[in-house]
């Protein structure tokens, strides 16, 4: 087989003679494939075990946690741990807070990002390039760098211990989102807008009727990214919020841990409840979420 290839392709140099040997390696080697799957399965089990431990432990009676050797499955299922978790802290409120903050930030920041992206990609204005560089440069700045001044500013605005401190900054500023969407706006053929402009459409109209619909795919990907980051955000709520009824889920789980430090099984129930919504969404929409996340990297 290697011989025939060698005879009709100029790519092959004389050094390549001994290649008949390779023919043997070409056939799918079943041992290698088995090893590959075994390694991947072992890895998958290692990834899944902590989750399984969490879920099954959430159903265990407290007395079972000291069992030696430990057992994954509860000998007696005790769903009341979930009741303890939900009643120990204002869980329903936390779920709602987490959801509405993440959803509102996602929708509104997508809009402001798309607007800014459109301006950077399509409108000529004084100082466009330097301003865009400033946006890019801020992506380098870690959140901890600005957290103290941000806390002071929130204090001045009277927003400490309100949800405004968690809503307004990410809605009004997301350099990565602006950068990502700008790349996509630049790829939209400008002729589409020209036609509309000749028909007398304003910039705002062009943006709403032409640009936004064409940005659906990247906006969905970016939206998933923003929602995940907001839903799981621990740092900012921890700094800005004090009142329990305003807490988001991550804060509540952390607080539950502090208040009921020896109640391990209920803590696992709380963690399960906090992790479940996104895990379920992830399992249903896995392909979209993973592709969306991968897209971020490819554009950066």
């Amino acid at each position: 087989m290697a011989v025939t290839t060698a005879s009709n392709t100029p790519l092959v140099t004389p050094v390549d003679e001994g290649h008949a040997r390779r023919g043997g390696r070409r056939r799918p080697i079943s041992v290698a494939r088995i090893v590959l799957h075994v390694v991947l399965i072992v890895g998958s089990v290692l990834m899944a075990l902590p989750f399984l431990w969490m879920i099954f432990s959430a159903f265990k009676p407290l007395s079972e946690i000291f069992l030696q050797p430990p057992r994954l499955l509860p000998s007696e299922w005790q769903p009341s741990n979930f009741v303890d978790a939900v009643t120990g802290v204002p869980f329903a409120a936390g779920l709602w807070n987490s959801f509405y903050i993440a959803a509102l930030v996602t929708i509104l920041s997508l809009l402001t990002c798309a607007m800014a992206a459109y301006a950077f990609a399509r409108i000529r204005f004084r100082g466009r390039e330097p301003l865009f560089l400033v946006f890019l440069a801020t992506m380098m700045i870690p959140a901890q760098m600005t957290i103290i001044p941000l806390y002071i500013i929130m204090g001045q605005l009277g927003w400490v211990d309100t949800h405004l401190s968690l809503l307004v900054p990410p809605i009004l500023f997301n350099a990565f989102g602006v950068f990502l969407l700008r790349q996509y706006v630049r790829n939209i053929p400008v002729e589409l807008e020209e036609a509309a402009a000749i028909d007398g459409a304003s910039r705002a109209r062009i943006f709403v009727t032409i640009i936004l619909p064409l940005l659906r795919t990247p906006m969905a990907a970016l939206g998933i990214f923003i929602f995940l980051a907001q839903w799981n955000n621990f740092f900012h709520p921890l700094i800005f919020l004090n009142t329990q009824e305003y807490f988001t889920l991550p804060l509540l789980v952390n607080q539950f841990k502090g208040q009921y430090s020896s109640d391990w099984t209920s803590l696992m129930a709380a963690a399960t409840l906090a992790a479940a919504p996104l895990l379920i969404v992830f399992i249903i929409a896995q392909r979209h979420i993973v592709e969306g996340i991968a897209l971020q990297g490819s554009k950066s």
Partner: peptide, 16 residues
């Protein structure tokens, strides 16, 4: 399996 922890909050992960 490998991606599931990525969508889980770091607080839930830390609790486990």
């Amino acid at each position: 399996f490998y991606f599931a922890p990525v969508v889980t909050s770091s607080v839930a992960v830390a609790a486990i």
